[in-house]
Design a protein around this nucleic acid. Structure first.
Lengths: 196, 196
DNA sequence: AAAGCACTAGACTGACTGGTCTACTTTAAG
DNA sequence: CTTAAAGTAGACCAGTCAGTCTAGTGCTTT
């Protein structure tokens, strides 16, 4: 397996289509057509549609994790500023896709975690990695005294991730980033505040 | 259209299967098989699968709204208690379905709002109705001085709904109600609090 | 030059999809 | 009793699904 260009093309097209339509609604033939790759190549690189789906998740997670590191682990910026930057990037992405795709991992989590344990495990791992990034950022904030220490960072991280994913979902059905703004505003006004 | 028993059976089976597997993964034949209704009857009551899906949403929303009224508009119980009861009911349901189905409207919102505007509109309306129930409950709480008045109830309601939906999604991938508990705890500890 | 392997190419398969069609049974009205 | 409509019944359709198969191309190694 030397020529990874074709494999990458397949994963790229797949990620795009799955983001837009979901996993079940995306046929292999549609993926093939959008990137002009014959079926033989597909089954040369992937053993099944599930295998392909997992590869799409893996690659998205890896590439997204890079962004996350840049946004959340930049020690030159105060931790709460980093979080705000993260939310701003999310809102911008929502605009760019016309409120249609949202978060690939969130979408697949909703669609597939009741359908396949393999997918559920893979998606769960991605979520947990994200939470860890939040945890580190929140620990920084607590160490600086920017936020109170009476909530454990892990619980706060879970709160932020779930709230944000829910806001993305709501933004999709509403076709507006308003829910994302509400979430962010209340979060910074009442949750991520110094000890009183 | 007098005999609604068959129609109801179809919608019931449909709601169950769609909750478990999603809309796209649920075939009409599967619905037919689980309730022993022939195809002719299906297309007698519904003009298409989409029409059927909308009927499933409508009926679920109507029945769920009844529960919501009982839980959230009971004036004999303090408003924040009503909200806690609502969350407790949600957690219980999550246990009952073994963390597999979650919220039908949330699932379909994620799966279909990028796929069909008709579905998106229908689901959005349901969400908005739910938010209104929260708004009324929060207004009661503000009137009693149980929570501060510096947040508009509409924004708070959006915050609660999105946070809760996100927690449900996360609970599904994690197979644990822990995210729902984290959300509830932080919400009542830091957001739904009296003016300081 | 030859052999072996990574990869391309797409026709093909059986199962299944949403949806149509015709025939039949039941119910209600005149 | 007759007739029309409501509803049941399932064979059938064209299209699509994931996946298989065989044939061939082009690069690398010996």
């Amino acid at each position: 397996m030397k020529n990874t260009a074709t494999r990458d093309k397949l994963i790229d097209s797949g990620a795009q289509l799955i983001s837009q339509q979901g996993y079940n609604a995306t046929g292999i033939n549609a993926v093939l057509k959008t990137c002009g790759v014959p079926k033989g190549s597909f089954y040369h690189y992937f053993s099944s549609k599930e295998d392909f789906g997992l590869a799409v998740i893996e690659r998205f997670a890896a590439s997204y994790d890079e962004t996350l590191v840049v946004l959340l682990e930049d020690n030159d910026t105060p931790p709460l500023e980093r979080l705000k930057r993260y939310f701003a990037a999310g809102r911008e992405h929502m605009h760019e896709c016309d409120h249609a795709t949202g978060c690939l991992i969130g979408n697949l989590g909703q669609e597939l975690s009741g359908q396949s344990d393999t997918f559920r495990d893979a998606l769960n791992l991605v979520f947990q990695r994200w939470e860890q990034r939040f945890v580190r950022c929140l620990q920084d904030a607590q160490a600086r005294g920017d936020i109170a220490t009476h909530s454990v960072p892990e619980a706060l991280a879970s709160f932020i991730l779930t709230g944000w994913e829910g806001a993305i979902l709501r933004a999709k059905t509403l076709k507006s980033v308003e829910p994302m703004e509400h979430f962010e505003k209340i979060l910074f006004q009442q949750v991520l505040v110094p000890a009183t």
